[in-house]
Design a protein around this nucleic acid. Structure first.
Length: 497
RNA sequence: GGCGGCAUAGCCAAGUGGCCAAGGCAGCGGUCUGCAAAACCGUUAUUCACCGGUUCGAAUCCGGUUGCCGCCUCCA
């Protein structure tokens, strides 16, 4: 079975055929580092993280490049506002970005180039475009790309030049020959950072950096180019024009674009001011809960953010970890009896077959344009097998333990590709309790003291006192679960509930 | 105005031509439990916005209608 992915360029799902057998080059547009990252950035990063993890899981050697735009108008504006050098701003937010993404469990890309490290490459590319008659310098030192001279402009975003003409306009002060043309190089104004160039002191336009960095690390033609869907036009369209205009070769083979996170049915964005930062969301949710929230929808679909949606993701993750905990309680790490395929009782044999089936079904879902939502559904089916095995009958039998060990293995294996189920379940729930208690201002010692008192009351069959304590805790959202091995607690009610 | 996308149960969300329409949350009945919670078993859309068409057969393809969203300006 082939991996199929939706290519924005052709508007179809296509079989993925890498340029070099067994190898994949991916370039994803990163962030402009002028502010703290929000969960829209998190979505994009998590999606491409899972894509690269899955490609590796499938046996490809992946080279994943994600850039930082570390010089642009907004960074300069912020630096001026704070009265510092622009690098101070970019360094600060690169560090923040790396920390936020690290906490989300996003594996660092293989290469994370910065625009300012590739100025000579940009100058070289612009020079080449001028030589090819696709770019021109104007008095004053700006250089523009001549859109009309590049055949095929609009093929990614599905528009033609006439349509675009109607909306295009020349901003005051610009000297371009045609409203559609875009800046490759901007002459620097007073107080702006600059680099020497054949056209005078200036700085790069936005699009040129990605053409240079992607091809520098991945070659003139590479496999996958990605980013948020808002980048399709003009950014990616312009990248194609610059890159193909210079090399005369196809640029990226497959274009992948992720959908947006919305708040109240509106796009989450800086300009609307309706964004939630990664740091804030991680104060109230486990990183894997955030990942689950993102991955429960398809990467191309819009995703509505809400506190309820995050809470549902938390419940779902709890259910997954609950299953791992049950296994761990019965089968401490590495102690599953090695009964192998030996004549298992029918029930266990059946369950084993279904458990072992998970990686294949997971792969079938992920092969279909990285359908993580469907893949997660399959994980829950194994959870149900586990629960059934633990609940029904003499669960301590070696065959049952063996099946449980296998279930843990496949859950960890597939979860690992998604970047979830990476924790020890006890650690996960401990963190969950601490975080939830903190959110509500509850004292953990107090809760545990009350549970201790209730245990003594139960021993004396003082049900009235025991229930009183339990109800009192329940009123605060603390739910107790009694079992043979003791009483555990979780916080279940919503904050304002 | 131009281009594109989406509309599946109370909510979230898979499914894109043919076995009973995944999965999560919520609900209901039962088992378990001192009583609960959790878990398990059973149950909850004869139907996929609406109208027409193609087909032996459509949630899935085609046309239209309605509603929502995105891009066309910086934006993941």
């Amino acid at each position: 079975m082939a991996l199929r992915l939706y290519n924005t360029l052709t508007r179809r799902k296509e079989d993925f055929v890498p340029i070099k057998d067994g190898e994949v080059g991916i370039y994803a547009c990163g962030v402009t580092v002028y502010d703290t990252c929000h969960i829209g950035h998190a979505r994009s990063a998590i999606n491409f993280d899972v894509i690269t993890r899955y490609l590796r899981y499938r046996g490809y050697r992946v080279n994943y490049v994600k850039n930082f735009t570390d010089v642009d108008d907004k960074i300069i504006a912020r630096a001026n506002r704070e009265g510092v050098e622009f690098r101070k701003i970019s360094e600060r937010y690169i560090a923040e970005h790396d920390r936020d993404m690290g906490q989300l469990g996003v594996e660092p890309p293989d290469v994370t180039p910065r625009a300012t490290e590739h100025i000579p490459g940009m100058i070289g590319l612009i020079d080449r475009l001028i030589g090819n008659g696709l770019a021109y310098a104007v008095p004053g030192g700006d250089v523009y790309f001549s859109v009309k001279n590049f055949r095929g402009y609009g093929k990614l975003s599905g528009r033609n030049l006439d349509e675009m003409m109607s909306g295009a306009r020349i901003a005051p002060g610009e000297k371009k020959k045609d409203p559609l043309d875009f800046a490759l190089w901007k002459a620097s104004k007073e107080g702006e950072p600059w680099w020497d160039s054949p056209w005078g002191k200036g700085r790069p336009g936005w699009h040129i950096e990605c053409s240079v960095m992607s091809t520098h690390f991945l070659g003139e033609t590479f496999d996958i180019h990605g980013g948020g869907e808002d980048l399709i036009f003009p950014h990616h369209e312009n990248e194609i024009a610059q890159s193909e205009g210079a090399s005369g070769k196809p640029f990226a083979k497959y274009w992948l674009h992720n959908g947006f996170i919305k708040v109240n049915h509106e796009k989450m964005s800086k300009s609307l001011g309706n964004f939630i930062t990664i740091r804030d969301i991680l104060k109230i949710h486990h990183p894997e809960v955030v990942r689950f929230f993102v991955l429960q929808g398809h990467y191309r679909s819009p995703l509505d953010f809400s506190e309820e949606a995050l809470n549902e993701a938390r419940f779902a993750m709890n259910r997954l970890y609950e299953a791992l905990k049950k296994i761990r309680d019965l089968v401490p790490a590495g102690t599953a009896p090695a009964v192998g395929e030996a004549p298992l009782p029918e029930k266990e044999r059946e369950l084993l077959a279904r458990v072992r089936d998970l990686p294949e079904r997971f792969r079938e879902a992920m092969d279909d344009d990285f359908n993580t939502a469907r893949a997660l559904g399959y994980l829950f089916e194994v959870v149900r097998q586990v629960n059934a095995l633990v609940t029904g009958g003499p669960e301590a039998s070696p065959p049952a333990l063996f099946v449980l060990g296998e279930a843990e293995r496949v859950l960890r294996e597939t979860g690992g590709v998604l970047g979830i189920l990476t924790e020890d379940p006890n650690v996960y729930f401990e963190k969950d309790r601490i975080r939830e208690a903190q959110k509500r201002g509850l004292q953990i010692d107090e809760i545990e003291a009350l549970i201790g008192e209730r245990l003594r009351a139960r021993k004396e069959k003082d049900w009235k006192r025991a229930d009183e304590i339990r109800d009192g805790l329940a009123a605060k959202g603390v739910v107790l679960k009694d079992s043979r091995t003791g009483t555990v607690w979780t916080v279940e009610k919503p904050v304002q509930g």
